[in-house]
Nucleic acid binder design. Structure first.
Lengths: 189, 189
DNA sequence: ATTCTAAACTAACAAGTGTTAGTTTTGGTA
DNA sequence: TACCAAAACTAACACTTGTTAGTTTAGAAT
């Protein structure tokens, strides 16, 4: 059972098209054709093109917020928290590669939900920053510029969506492990 | 002297708008208004909207190709080559933040030059891969999955464009140094 | 068999798209 | 001053956009 219902089918189909061409370049007629229906029929299930984008992005942003809250409250080392963040990104991305493209590239086309999205993203980044600074303070992490560390790790995790699909043979646990290794331990012997 | 001529002004202005909303969401009338002119007047300087995108992306792609060729031919260690790649990205991005957004997000809207762009990108990635594999073979780099290493480093470098502008106080040498540190040596003490 | 509702359809809209044709303005050179 | 080309302008084009109105179809419940 690939889709829960027609609305879900429309949203998932749209997410695929948004990933390939971006939100603005995809028309309601494109989505309709991919679903096998006329453009006007889409409006029996969704309110607007905007609503499709919002449902894709907000659902994902809330998954990240939720996952981060769990990690933050766990009583584990800072390094372990970083590993769980990597795992969080790998898991969410593996389950929704197409939607992650919209989250990364089309968030600025949100209208009603733009402020809400920006708040979620800012909070997420602040939580991430806090974990890094705690790790530095406790001596678990090298005392590099924590902004550079945040940017470096997060940008890799953000582009996972365009990379995972090409290596479907990999299971998420293996990938999260390897990625944690490279991101946290570096590449120099 | 900010612009070489009016064509250059149009292209740089367009690049800024493309970064903010994406190629497809920016209209010729948007570009014209930002330049301070009517849309039809743009066509005295450029052939089409497509041409603007091509000039932005291809110029940058060729800079990377050129830079990579120099690095590849240098007689230096693999680690030193990686550091020079980081510097290459920092320098090009610092000089063209807006254009880098198009290179990353709007390349799929290229038409005539799409194949050429894809070839340049593929060659660049292959050269990068070769440097990593040589480093592993010579024992300079940890024997991690080289595809994971390639993805991890390159994805960070690709998103520099959205991050550099927020820290204009940093000079490129300092940033390249810090970034090389985190990317190559990791963050764990 | 009849009813009814969800969901498909056709047709059309007003606004916006990239681009062209033809005309006027501008500012340096003869 | 007269000229001329570069570059601005106005007006319009053919087409595409998201969306709505009104109608028909399909299939489950009575």
């Amino acid at each position: 059972m690939k889709y829960e219902n027609r609305k879900d089918e429309i949203i998932q189909t749209a997410a695929l098209l948004f990933k390939e061409k971006g939100y603005s370049a995809v028309t309601m007629r494109d989505i309709a054709k991919a679903v096998g229906v006329r453009a006007a029929s889409l409006y029996n299930h969704i309110k607007s093109k905007q609503e499709i984008l919002s449902e894709i992005i907000i659902a994902l942003a809330e998954q990240f917020t939720c996952g981060m809250n769990v990690i933050q409250d766990a009583e584990i080392s800072s390094v372990e928290k970083l590993k769980r963040i990597v795992k969080l990104h790998v898991d969410i991305t593996a389950n929704n590669q197409n939607g992650m493209a919209s989250l990364n590239n089309d968030w600025m086309h949100l209208e009603a939900d733009l402020d809400y999205y920006l708040r979620l993203r800012k909070d997420y980044e602040n939580d991430f920053r806090t974990i890094l600074n705690e790790g530095i303070a406790k001596g678990e992490l090298i005392n590099f510029d924590s902004e550079v560390m945040l940017f470096s790790i997060l940008s890799t995790l953000r582009l996972l969506y365009g990379w995972i699909p090409r290596r479907e043979e990999l299971n998420p646990n293996y990938l999260a492990d390897k990625l944690s290794g490279v991101l946290l331990e570096g590449v120099i012997r």
